[in-house]
Computed example of a mutant assay.
Amino acid sequence: MRRTDFWERMGETFGPAYAASVAADQVLPQLRGRTIEQAIAAGEDIGEIWRAVCTTYGDRVPSRIRR
């Protein structure tokens, strides 16, 4: 997955402004206790980060973009 795809999915899931807030502020256990921004900065695979978002916010992520 490309970063642009990731951010499009984040925007679709949370709205653009809230997506940025989630990425900066929410610590996800699946990312070893880091935020999305920290995981990206550490070079984590963007697909793994997206899967962590889907696991954490499964009720918010539209099913058609969960893959």
Rank of each mutant, 00 (worst) to 15 (best):
R2F: 07
R3V: 13
R3T: 12
T4C: 09
T4E: 14
D5H: 11
F6Y: 14
W7M: 02
W7F: 00
W7N: 07
W7Y: 04
W7D: 03
W7H: 03
W7E: 02
E8S: 13
R9E: 04
M10H: 03
M10A: 07
E12K: 05
E12G: 09
E12R: 04
E12L: 01
F14S: 05
F14Y: 07
F14K: 04
F14H: 00
F14C: 00
F14V: 00
G15S: 08
G15H: 08
G15C: 02
G15W: 02
P16Q: 06
P16T: 08
A17V: 10
A17F: 08
A17T: 12
A17E: 12
Y18M: 11
A19E: 00
S21Q: 15
S21P: 08
S21E: 15
S21N: 15
S21R: 15
S21Y: 14
V22R: 03
V22E: 06
V22M: 08
A24K: 06
A24C: 07
A24Y: 02
A24Q: 07
D25C: 05
D25K: 07
Q26P: 09
Q26C: 15
V27Y: 05
V27A: 09
Q30E: 14
Q30T: 12
L31Q: 02
L31I: 03
L31G: 02
R32T: 15
G33F: 09
R34G: 05
R34N: 08
R34L: 12
T35I: 02
E37C: 12
E37S: 14
E37A: 15
Q38R: 04
Q38A: 06
Q38S: 06
Q38F: 02
A39D: 11
A39C: 08
I40E: 15
I40M: 15
A41H: 10
A41T: 11
A42T: 06
A42W: 01
E44T: 14
E44I: 11
E44C: 13
D45I: 01
I46D: 01
I46M: 05
G47N: 09
G47Q: 12
E48M: 11
E48N: 11
I49S: 02
I49V: 13
I49Y: 05
W50A: 01
R51D: 11
R51T: 11
R51E: 10
A52C: 06
A52V: 01
V53Y: 00
C54W: 11
C54E: 07
C54I: 14
T55P: 10
T55A: 15
T55H: 13
T56I: 10
T56E: 10
T56H: 12
T56L: 08
Y57C: 07
G58F: 03
G58K: 01
R60D: 08
V61W: 01
V61M: 09
V61A: 05
V61G: 08
P62N: 05
P62I: 03
S63P: 07
S63T: 07
S63I: 03
S63R: 11
R64P: 03
R64A: 06
R66M: 11
R66W: 09
R66G: 07
R66P: 05
R66K: 13
R67H: 10
R67G: 10
R67C: 08
